[in-house]
Design a protein around this nucleic acid. Structure first.
Lengths: 138, 138
DNA sequence: TTTCAAAGTTGTAATCATTACATCTTTGTT
DNA sequence: AACAAAGATGTAATGATTACAACTTTGAAA
């Protein structure tokens, strides 16, 4: 497993330090679209010397090199996704959880340019209430 | 003009105080997808007693009552849009300006539900570089 | 093997958008 | 005129993110 992640980073031109491998490994194995805090809290357990600044720095490197996506769907916290294939996201306004939304025809809205704009990224976000939160509130 | 905005708010069940009319008027006349700071700075000139907290409160009321859209396209600042018709947005990673993107077939990705999710809002965001910033950098 | 520089990590302090909250003002009603 | 509810204001707190300086690791050259 660690070997795979190491290779994964190297293939993207990222020096695979222990911390970077740990963060990338987290993103590739947990599909919660985690915040910096979630990643930090969980990795701290096994890496007590890990610094939150390092998690910030690492995520920046991963995003800049195309190894992770940065999601701005949540007003409160930036979220990260290790799945870099184009896909839509949903956030529940009740519990705050972020899910992937499969089966969206992203090609219909995907663009690389528009009236002279050079487009490097397309995001489709849905907001609403998940099944559990529908029961609780409305 | 102020009369129109007053009516606009009342039609949406919003008590049209002077401050609310001013903020709504700004959103309906400037298409910069302004931040709280932009709105506050500009309105302060003619309303010196305006408080930034009031701008926050007002925008919350407008969004809750469907008179404005809240955009999370910009990691730095929340942005607001007085155009509540569904349309896509673009942010320039160089200068930070947000533009509307016309001609996107939003119906292709618009959903009201998906696997039990109750979807209340759909956002399509593009990121990249505008014409001016393409010249300057890349 | 030592030396050294570059890259990476760490912890603390600063920044800055947003929210909480208590007080004051406005508005409309009895 | 008195009062209550809604709205506005200013200040203080919160909390995510960034800046920065010091420390550590890594790997190559001598």
């Amino acid at each position: 497993m660690p070997v795979r992640v190491k290779t994964y980073l190297q293939e993207r031109g990222i020096n695979p330090s222990m911390q970077r491998v740990a963060v990338m490994h987290y993103l590739l194995n947990y599909f919660t679209h985690p915040t910096v805090d979630e990643i930090y809290s969980n990795l701290s357990k096994s890496m007590p010397t890990l610094s939150k600044t390092t998690v910030y720095n690492t995520l920046k490197v991963l995003v800049e090199n195309g190894a992770a996506l940065q999601l701005t769907i949540d007003e409160k916290n930036t979220r990260y996704d290790g799945n870099t294939h184009p896909h839509a996201h949903f956030i529940c306004l009740g519990c705050g959880k972020v899910h992937d939304v499969e089966g969206v025809n992203l090609a219909a809205v995907d663009k690389t340019d528009h009236n002279g704009l050079q487009i490097t990224e397309t995001q489709v976000y849905y907001k609403g209430y998940c099944e559990e939160c529908q029961k609780i509130n409305h």
